[in-house]
Amino acid sequence: MSLPARTSPLSDAQAAHAARWIDLEGMRSVAVFEREPAAALDIVAIGDLSYRRRVGVKGPSAAAALAGLGLATPAKPNSWCRTEDAIVARLGITEYLIEDSAGGETVAKVLALPAAAGVYPVPRFDAELVVAGPQAVDLFRQTCAVDISTLDAAGGALALTSMVGVGVTVAAVMTPAGVTYRIWCDGTYGGYLWETLCEVAEDMGGGAIGYEAVARVVR
């Protein structure tokens, strides 16, 4: 029996507003929302990247295990770096998050790591949001107590903080469209986070965007 379809942690929150769906790496995702603001990306737009495959690794030998796979890890906690087809984020002294870019295979390699002392795999099925647009910082200012504008996109800084009361990890990512923000949170809080951020964004004139629009700002 083959694996069934994956379900996005945001699926329940998005289903009623979806105009068209798309399959992304085995996960049904929204391609276009019904009332997607045309100018959302010019104001503030929120998209869903939960389809990306990711895994965590923690433990005193985690960095060495990743290095054994040829994966560079950030030198400092609370930072991230990009490899050929993945993001490697260092969430603590000995804890890492690895996320594949579209079509990446790094996560599969990490999952295949043999059991070893001091290397503890962490299954992760986060909700992942991307916030883009010139007023993205203002959206954070209404929802997060950390000054996200100081996150150094070029330097790969991460913030482990809370937004609207939900524990999140935020990375600033430089894209051709400007700085975008990636937000990871526990999938069970994802629906609430999505709905709340969309509500704030709509107040600002922006709103949710489907994958077709997301793809223009995320690589």
């Binding site: 329940d12 209404q142 009361g165 939900v166 609430y192 709340t196």
Partner: peptide, 17 residues
């Protein structure tokens, strides 16, 4: 103002609804 009251939903929330 706007109140933030985080709540969690199981992956099966939509099925229950």
């Amino acid at each position: 103002g706007r109140g933030f009251n985080p709540h969690r939903r199981s992956p099966l929330h939509g099925r229950h609804a």
